[in-house]
Nucleic acid binder design. Structure first.
Lengths: 228, 228
DNA sequence: GAATTTCTTTGACTTAAATCAAAAAATGGG
DNA sequence: CCCATTTTTTGATTTAAGTCAAAGAAATTC
């Protein structure tokens, strides 16, 4: 069923069965074409979303058109919650990276449910807290580390999430990765090349073999690997 | 009384009187010397804080010792909530910038209270959401704007908060401001000088007169003021 | 109020990463 | 399978901002 993924979302963890039903009952499913705009920065938000299938990017654009990706969310992950609670507008934009399906939860009705169920409120607090934590490292990375360190950190993180720790597979394009890391495709390309030359990694399309995990970890911490 | 400031905190807005009392009852006051460390990144968090008096900075340090300030909080503002809900460690460190007093709210007991009072939960959700929104712009600024634009944005924001919109007064040192803007004191100093030469501002210690508000606003949006 | 510490500014230099331009690969319909 | 679009790579060049070093101001303390 459509909502099975949603029901497994962190947001609804440990929710009593009848509450879960009530929550899912207020959701509306929306199919999205690749590239479809879900909402734009500055728009008022009258609800939030959960990805059911596909991938959604949350991003900001500069006037010159450069993009900074804040998150890329997959199945089960909620997004667009900020205006629900801050009463403000969307602080960033959302777009389907590939053909996707999402559930929409209207603000009003969701707030009613959250008021009635502390578990739901605590889950939402946990979601926002983790996101805050993630932003914290994104800010640290942008401000205190250079691109190679950010990339190394990303690869190390990926390897922890994926089954085989010695080979990771990017689930996004290199262009998107560049934008997520706060740089541009040209720079990312050059750095991937350099890391290959130093035998830290081996790149093969979206597959990246981690040849020197420890070296990557050190680089990620921004202590140059073996001080040159 | 000590807790009057805390009771005016956004966190406790619209809280029924007896609930407010119950919440304040679990708080413990802590006096802090200037420079006192409140918690460090990586430490487990067993509660959060509210500033009663003084100023607290939340920051990250790189290995090389460069600092990125994430927030500077004053009276009424809560901080250190992330681990309370994420179950994780503190993602950043906190230090008193000046002699201060804070209230500490132990995790366990606060969670009990929040479970019992939806208003409190919703207030906390609002706090975290706004913070998420703030981080969003911090990330955008770091990644998509250059230092002069960030500084201009900061000044414009300050002028909106303060009574007299044509003259702002920094409530933090220039060194701290540099760190907050993701740069170093030398660079900030040079940029203040440049902006003075262009008659955008006039600097006098911590007082900065905004001579060309529109120019600053445009610069903040990163569209160069009058294209050079 | 002289002295020590801290904060801010200035100068000369280096560098990481952006820009611009264009070639080379990869992808995806028709 | 081929063409057209999109994505990625390479090269040459520019530039914003960092580093290092040291002088000047301000603030604090004795």
């Amino acid at each position: 069923m459509n909502k099975t993924i949603a029901s497994q979302s962190i947001l609804f963890k440990e929710l009593p069965a009848h509450h879960l039903e009530a929550v899912l009952a207020i959701a509306v499913e929306k199919p999205l074409e690749k590239g479809a705009l879900i909402f734009s920065e500055g728009e008022p938000g009258n609800g939030f979303y959960i990805v059911v299938e596909g991938q959604v990017k949350i991003y900001k654009l500069s006037l010159e058109g450069k993009e900074q990706i804040l998150h890329i969310f997959g199945p089960g992950e909620p997004f667009g919650e900020v205006p629900v609670f801050s009463g403000d507008v969307f602080p960033a934009s959302a777009e389907a990276v590939k053909k996707s399906r999402v559930l929409f939860f209207p603000r009003r009705r969701f707030i009613e449910l959250i008021s009635a169920d502390p578990t739901l409120a605590l889950n939402m607090l946990a979601v926002l807290s983790r996101r805050l934590r993630d932003f914290t490292v994104q800010i640290e990375d942008l401000s205190l580390k250079e691109v190679p360190a950010r990339l190394a950190g990303y690869l190390v993180l990926l390897s922890k999430e994926q089954q085989n720790p010695s080979e990771v597979c990017l689930h996004i394009s290199k262009g998107h990765l560049a934008s997520f890391l706060g740089t541009i495709p040209e720079t990312l390309s050059r750095i991937l090349k350099k890391m290959s030359e130093k035998d830290l990694i081996r790149v093969n399309g979206k597959k990246i073999r981690l040849l020197d995990y420890e070296g990557l970890r050190m680089l990620a911490e921004s202590g140059r690997p073996g001080q040159e």
